[in-house]
Design a protein around this nucleic acid. Structure first.
Lengths: 225, 225
DNA sequence: TATTAAAAAAATACTTGAAATATTATTTGT
DNA sequence: ACAAATAATATTTCAAGTATTTTTTTAATA
């Protein structure tokens, strides 16, 4: 990377967001481990022997520990003092509890977006599902990705950083439910648009209601299994 | 502590919750730092020079780092890569955003408690404020403590661990608003009981509504200032 | 004197090794 | 088969050192 800067400016101001390009080792470790947890390379309940993982990834223990602590805070890793770090395993009760959290968070997000009245927001949300609108055969993988993008976007577009920070449950559902969707696209596509339309209309109560119902339906289905 | 255990049992089962009594150094460091942040010993925006704090607390940097990472995840400390850790400073927008999160979380908690129909829960909630019920002059410090206990209890009593995990904003309000209450006890005491009564009646919608309104009123007041 | 450039100092991020402690597995004796 | 003792393993913490980046200080220049 070539830095072209006026030095006195650098001295006074030094950093802009677009300048940031840090290479911290714990970051890629974190991402790799997350991937390994979510795709099943590391199994639920499995113990993470720190030195072995460090050797496997070719890194030292310090940045590995940092990554593990970040994962612990995202509910992907569980630490038992003096015994070690384990890949968290979620029982039914805990998954339900997570869905309840999502209900609260995403419901509030939908409300906030409806109140914002930002046209650009509507377009971004619509764009998630526009490829599937008039297609007979919906590609499941593509739809799953779109679904995840939509739910994540719903939070991000609020511009509420703390809300985004407490929304780290999106990961978990993917893994725990086993890579598949809980309900078919035919059923959920319509629900997604009910949420988007309510946001577009500026109807905050309806937006929140639909967002909640959408998640609750999946939750209820999990419970029945 | 005297351990009396049948060894073969220990070999097989080994740990119960009540047995846990771990001595990790990062834990007291974490607690001390949290205290220092919340009581103002460490000021907002202040840089945390790791070696100095480590020396001050008489510990090495390893467990200090662990504690700082935990605090970062609780929104009390902000890390800027390669530049250091800083005590987070919250602007008005961010405080509002935090209150919005609380609205979503505590609202959901009130709903869950109302659905539970557990008599014991009602009693615990009532106990928070019973000392102030018939008193003319309410002790502000005592009431502030009771208020914090109540809001924290509201979450804990749901038994929803993930919900409790994402509720780490209780801390912040205390410090940021400046140790004082936003609104007088005369105003909020009644609101608290409206929430409790709705929970007692099992009216989930009302419980959530009142819990939300309660927080929203404080939020609106912050916004007006 | 105000700016700029260069040099020095300080701090972070990471590595590595080692000691202390606790946990887990194995061996031994009854 | 069981209990106790022992050995092996892993975590946690400390510590010292290296490389890199940031910040401060000093010197030079217009």
């Amino acid at each position: 990377m070539t830095k072209i800067v006026i030095l006195y400016f650098v001295y006074k101001i030094q950093y802009y967001d677009f300048m940031i390009e840090h290479t911290s080792i714990s970051e890629p470790i974190y991402l790799r481990l997350k991937e390994m947890i979510l795709n099943g390379e590391l199994k639920q309940g499995e113990k993470i022997v720190q030195e072995k993982i460090a050797e496997l990834l070719g890194v030292s223990r310090t940045p590995l520990m940092k990554a593990l602590l970040a994962l612990e805070n995202e509910y992907l890793v569980e630490s038992i003092p003096r015994r070690g770090m384990y890949i968290r395993s979620w029982d039914k009760k805990e998954i339900i509890d997570i869905y309840i959290c999502r209900e609260a968070i995403e419901g509030m997000a939908a409300r906030l977006l409806a109140q914002s009245g930002d046209e650009n927001i509507i377009n971004q949300l619509k764009d998630c599902f526009s490829p599937f609108l008039n297609s007979k055969d919906i590609n499941l993988n593509a739809y799953t990705e779109a679904d995840e993008a939509f739910h994540s976007l719903l939070i991000k577009l609020t511009g509420n950083a703390p809300l985004d920070k407490i929304y780290f449950f999106g990961n978990i559902h993917e893994k725990v439910i086993g890579h598949g969707l809980i309900r078919p696209p035919e059923e959920t596509l319509n629900e997604h648009f009910k949420i988007i339309n309510a946001i577009e209309k500026g109807d905050a109560d309806a937006a929140e209601k639909f967002a909640r119902e959408h998640i609750k339906k999946s939750r209820d289905l999990l419970f029945d299994q």
